[in-house]
Simulated scan of single mutants.
Amino acid sequence: MPFPALTETAAAPQTGTLPRHVPLAAQTRGGLVESIHYGSLIAVSGEAAGTRTLLAAGDPSAPFYPRSALKPLQAVAMVRAGLDLPADLLALAAASHSGAAAHRDGAARILQLHGLSVEALENSTDLPYGASEREAWLRGGGTATRLAQNCSGKHAAMAATCVINGWPVAGYLDPSHPVQRLVAETVVELTGEEPSTVSTDGCGTPLFALTLRGMARAFGRLAAAELDPAAASAGNAEAAVAHAMRSHPEMVAGEGRDVTELMRRVPGLLAKDGFEGVQLVGLPDGRALAVKISDGGDRARMPVTIRALEALDVGTGPLADLAAGTVLGGGHPVGLLLAADFLHSTSPAPETL
C-alpha cells in the first residue's frame, strides 16, 4: 500500500472541512451547563447479520486518527506474521499500558524471548502513563525510558516479529519496512477502508486516518472471532488477539483504568481506547461501537460510551460509577458530567454498509 507524503501546513482548517460533530456530553455546575463536549459515534451490527448502522451521531464517516485504538489491529497483523506469545504478552502487544512493573517486565520478556535487548526498541521515551505508577517510578529515581512508555509492548512485539521473519529490526518504524507494510494491509482488510492519509503516532509508528465506521467494523470482526471454534482452532489471529485482551484486561491498560474495568465487568466485551478522546468497543455477537470526542479530552469518553452501550441493550449496571463524573465546588458535589441525549435527534435509519 503506498503511503502519501506527509505534509503539514500552518494554515487554519477551513470551516467547511471540519467534521460535523454534535453535542455528546455536558458538564453542569449549579444547574447550569458549564461545558459541552462535541463528537461523533457509530455502532454497527456484526457481519453475520449483514453489517448495518445500528445507531449514530455526528459525522461517523469523517476521517480521524484512531491513535492507540489501532493496536489490536496491529497485533492481528503480527500474529498473522508468526508472532506466538503467551496470552498475557499478546494482550500487552495490543496495550496502552500504565507502566506498572508487570507491564515493563512483560515488554522485556517479549524481547528476551526473541534474543533482543531493550536497545532494539525504537519508540519514544516517556514516564509511566498511570498516575500511581508514574509517582512510584519517580520516587524510585526513574526517568523517561522506552520500556516505561505506554506503547513498549507493541514495539517489543514489532521487533520480535522482525526476528521471526528474518526482517531487519533496525528501522522497523519506517513505513516501507515489511512489518509496517503488513500492518497497513491488515488495517485495510479489517476496516474495509483505504486510509485517507498517513501520519505518525506519538510513539513513532505509522498512523492511519480512517472513519469511525471502518474502525467499528474492524472491532466487530475481532470481538466475534473468538466465538468461532473452527477459526480459533485454526489459529485465527483475530480470535487470538481478542482472547488475549479479554483474558488479561489488566495488561491492556492497568489497575484503575476504565478500559480494564470495562472488560472485567462486562463479560465478552472487547475494549480499547486511544488518545484524543477515542473509544472502541466490540461485543461477542459482532456488534461494535466507535466513539470520538472532538476536543480530544478524556473525561467525556466513558459516559458517552456507556450511554451508547445502553442504547444497544448491553447491561451497563456494573459500569454505573463510570457513567458520570461528579463536579465539585468547595469539596462538595455541585454538578455532573453526563452524556447528552445525542440519540434523540441524530440517529439515522439502519443502513447497509
Rank of each mutant, 00 (worst) to 15 (best):
M1R: 13
A5Y: 06
T7K: 15
E8Y: 14
T9M: 04
T17I: 12
R20F: 08
A25W: 02
G39Q: 08
G50M: 00
S61G: 15
S61R: 14
F64H: 13
S68Q: 03
V76T: 10
R80P: 02
G82A: 06
D84T: 10
P86A: 06
L90C: 05
L92K: 05
H97N: 04
H97A: 03
R104P: 05
I110T: 07
L111E: 07
L113N: 10
N123E: 08
G142W: 07
G142M: 11
Q149C: 15
Q149M: 15
S152V: 12
N165S: 09
P175E: 04
P178S: 11
P178V: 11
V179F: 01
Q180N: 10
R181P: 02
R181K: 12
E189Y: 04
L207A: 15
T211G: 07
G220R: 00
A224D: 10
A225T: 01
A239H: 06
A240Q: 07
V241M: 05
M251G: 01
V252H: 04
V252W: 05
G254A: 05
G254S: 02
E255L: 14
R257T: 08
V259A: 09
G268H: 02
K272M: 00
D273G: 15
V281P: 01
R287P: 03
K292C: 14
I293R: 06
I293M: 08
I293W: 02
S294E: 14
G297T: 13
R301D: 04
R301S: 15
R307W: 05
L309A: 00
L309G: 01
D313S: 15
G315M: 12
T316L: 02
G317T: 15
G325T: 01
L328R: 11
A340R: 03
A340W: 00
E351G: 10
L353W: 11
